[in-house]
Design a protein around this nucleic acid. Sequence first.
DNA 1: ACTGATATTGAGACTCAATATCAATTACAA
DNA 2: TTGTAATTGATATTGAGTCTCAATATCAGT
Lengths: 145, 145
Amino acid sequence: MPKEKSVLIGFLKKNKMKMTSQRDKILDFFLKWEKHLSPDEMYYELKKLYPRIGRATVYRTLKLLTKANIASQVELGDGASRFEHKYNHPHHYHLICSRCGKLIEFVSDKIDALKKNISKKHSFLPNNVRFEIFGLCKKCQKYRN
Amino acid sequence: MPKEKSVLIGFLKKNKMKMTSQRDKILDFFLKWEKHLSPDEMYYELKKLYPRIGRATVYRTLKLLTKANIASQVELGDGASRFEHKYNHPHHYHLICSRCGKLIEFVSDKIDALKKNISKKHSFLPNNVRFEIFGLCKKCQKYRN
DNA sequence: ACTGATATTGAGACTCAATATCAATTACAA
DNA sequence: TTGTAATTGATATTGAGTCTCAATATCAGT
């Protein structure tokens, strides 16, 4: 059993919520999938495997996983939100290629320092930071557009 | 005549586009309005003044103003995009209060340095950066939620 | 000032992501 | 095993934003 599943079960217990086969399947799928899927994409993939699954359940479960610290939501600048693994993954930021959509992850303690400094200066209590660099990845720089 | 209007007229000429009464009105409204409005909010406000104006025209004109460097688009994390003045405004970033929506602007050359360093390290050709800190402003820290 | 080529407008249909509703179903503590 | 509270999922709805296309307005060249 993956650790994330224990985490989920613990979280559910703590909140008087129930483990269901749908939640199990969605978590499973989420963990197997390497890259960032939007909820709708996940819904269509899951629908292939389990035709009776509902869109709302997928959305709800992804929110749930986010609350349980198993997933985290990222905005990549296209219309949809996306989810990535969070449990045991270091907090990171993204370089986003505007041409091919490629994501490069990086970590930076400078960003965290910046967050603290700037917030302090403005009596602001920071929660989370968004830092994304949009541009062209190595491959896409070769093309005009 | 505000400078932004000359800028717009120049931009239109350069691109064989035409000045219209709608564009004039939308620019006017945009300049008068202090804070960040979403296109739809602008549309409804403008509709009060000029009932025959179309939603698509507002959206199109805001894009146009962005291309002409008069406006710039920001994402505040709610569903809608928002536009702020850009002409003669220094490039800045935002602290965003999750509770009341308050915006605090700040400038930071460190962010630009970071952008360059990190991009170089990953052979990435950067275009623009998004940096936002979400949290609670001074007032909202007093409340539980 | 007129005119014609061309850019623009706007009503409404449409797309797409996401949320709300609510009757039927399921999980699980006792 | 059972009662009840949480959950599901089909469907409707919302909301932001785009597309279409016939009608209209602008403006460069005369």
